[in-house]
């Protein structure tokens, strides 16, 4: 109980930090002053949305059981998500898996053809390759790893860190490294 309380307080604090930080940057007009500012604003806004979104979902009165907040627990009843032993679990059929496999092969072939054709610019190639890789990863995770048919929280566990990772990469690491390249170091 106390652990949940600390968790909710932390989430609230994170949301307030996110809201005030992004609002302050925007109000000051310093949003586009630097790439750092832009990234920080986006990150803070994302944290605010996630934090308040989670709290709103958790304490949504229409979702809580008649007994009140304590009985809501994880929120979704166990019965909606069948466990592995239940024959209904394997609801994706083999033909669908074959189609996903063909799709993965096709995307791989497209990537290899791109490497052969050597499209203009490393940056463009990198973007397209990463985009295709993310799509392939999404397909593997969704169907082969069964994410599409599982409890949505698993998708969130994957999506949130991935988005944060990409933001940090594009906001901090790549500009840094291109700067190093330009400086000729």
């Amino acid at each position: 109980m106390i652990v949940s309380l600390i968790g909710y307080l932390f989430t609230l604090a994170l949301g307030i930090w996110g809201l005030t930080t992004s609002a302050e940057l925007v109000a000051r007009g310093a949003l586009t002053a630097s790439l750092d500012n832009l990234f920080l604003t986006l990150f803070a806004a994302l944290m605010a949305v996630l934090s308040f979104g989670y709290l709103a979902w958790r304490f949504n009165p229409s979702r809580l059981a008649p007994a009140g907040a304590a009985a809501a627990g994880g929120g979704v009843s166990v019965e909606r998500y069948v466990l592995p032993e239940d024959p209904a679990y394997e609801d994706a059929h083999i033909p669908l898996f074959n189609k996903i496999w063909i799709g993965l092969l096709a995307l791989t072939v497209i990537e290899v053809v791109l490497a052969y054709v050597q499209l203009a610019g490393v940056l463009f190639m990198l973007t397209i390759l990463l985009l295709l890789s993310v799509i392939k990863a999404g397909m593997i995770m969704g169907w082969f790893m069964h994410l599409k048919f599982d409890h949505p929280v698993f998708s969130w566990v994957v999506v949130v860190p991935a988005v944060a990772c990409i933001l940090i990469m594009c906001g901090y690491f790549f500009p840094d490294s291109f700067q190093l390249l330009r400086l000729g170091l």
């Binding site: 592995p84 032993e85 791989t108 990537e111 290899v112 791109l114 490497a115 490393v122 190639m125 990198l126 390759l129 990463l130 295709l132 890789s133 392939k136 990863a137 593997i140 995770m141 082969f144 790893m145 069964h146």
Partner: peptide, 28 residues
């Protein structure tokens, strides 16, 4: 069957990593 599925998850993860390693290290 759950154990088989968990092993499958690990194997798909290995494939997933290769989906990123292959373009970034080989194709580029």
């Amino acid at each position: 069957p759950e154990d088989v599925e968990v092993a499958g998850l690990y194997w798909h993860f290995v494939d997933l990593v290769w989906m990123f390693v292959f373009p970034l290290i080989y194709l580029l």
